[in-house]
Design a protein around this nucleic acid. Sequence first.
DNA 1: TGTACATCAGTGAACGCGCGTTCACTGATGTAC
DNA 2: TGTACATCAGTGAACGCGCGTTCACTGATGTAC
Lengths: 202, 202
Amino acid sequence: MKSPRERRQLRTKEHILTVARDMVLQHGYAGLSLRAVAKAADYSPSGLYEYFSSKDELMDTLSRRSGDLLSEALAQAAAGADPLCDIGLAYIAFALENPEEFQLLFSRTRSKREGLDEAVTGNNPYGLLLGQVVRAQERGALSTDLAPEMVSYALWALVHGIATLRLSHLSGFRADFESVDRGAITALLQGLRPGVSNPISP
Amino acid sequence: MKSPRERRQLRTKEHILTVARDMVLQHGYAGLSLRAVAKAADYSPSGLYEYFSSKDELMDTLSRRSGDLLSEALAQAAAGADPLCDIGLAYIAFALENPEEFQLLFSRTRSKREGLDEAVTGNNPYGLLLGQVVRAQERGALSTDLAPEMVSYALWALVHGIATLRLSHLSGFRADFESVDRGAITALLQGLRPGVSNPISP
DNA sequence: TGTACATCAGTGAACGCGCGTTCACTGATGTAC
DNA sequence: TGTACATCAGTGAACGCGCGTTCACTGATGTAC
């Protein structure tokens, strides 16, 4: 079918990952099998061990890439007029549009941080959110009495909850979620404004 | 080992479910196998088909029971002085104390409702929360401009997000979550109070 | 330019595993006469 | 009370499946002389 030349061009780690990602998107991350990936990428099952030392390593690579995609989506959202709310909505949208990637991401990726004392690393979704929270405090949109990490956590939890509920328990439920989601985020942010008595003690 | 009499007493559907539940708690719901349950309950693998027509049916039964346990925990919390906040905290506590049951519950149970027009059924966790929201509105703790279902959804999403994050991504992260969680819930509720401009339009 | 050798991506068969489910059967119990 | 039969919970072996991983190997490519 394929010429040797075509075949050689396709035989890259990148191609295998692309194929694997497509399979996750189509059949779910839980059902992904090395053998199926190998077949789809035109390898024998053992051939993939040239590129990955185990199925786990392949899955981790996929998971990390999903994280990068999410970061990218959030970074774009952070450029708008209402960054905090938009980041939250973008988070939800990403989960709904890429359900399998979202689940892959959160089923495998544990936070590398183990406490508030450790620094937040780089360009990950949480770091991005945290940065915007600090900025919101600087321009007076959020009370400065609140620890930024706590605000970020609350906001993250809210949108994460919306995302996971709508992917699992509420899949099949029809409603105008878009406006409700926006409303919920706004409500939380209003509860964190200066003037409203501080619920979170630092 | 066991006398015939003892053996007969143990051979009930109830006993099988107890054994199965224990195995879920210990080894996770994803790894539960019929054969392992049969072995632990002193049956041959095929013997369980006397009680359940398939593994799926057994899992569904387990899942429904987890839901009942959660409902019970929330109902108790609703009896306190600050029902909405306490229900939320109880939801989080249940998830952390019974992680496998919580995941079993949400990996299998889809909402039977498919839209706001359908009635909320019985004693499930969401119905319980909704009832308390209505009561909070009646006593003026929440703006009556807000649709109760939307408030319930927002609150549920927040605590569900906290629960799932702490079970997955933030397992291993050490912090004083208890006070932060309480603060996050309080903040959301404050954003929904009368007087604060309504974020959710009905 | 030709030959001998080393490298190395990739193969194919096999290993050993556990799974859910089916089915012909057994053997104890209950029932009818 | 004893016998013949029906019921039925439960068994054990087998089916057919797919999985991740290992390993001796091949055959094309690159390198050195």
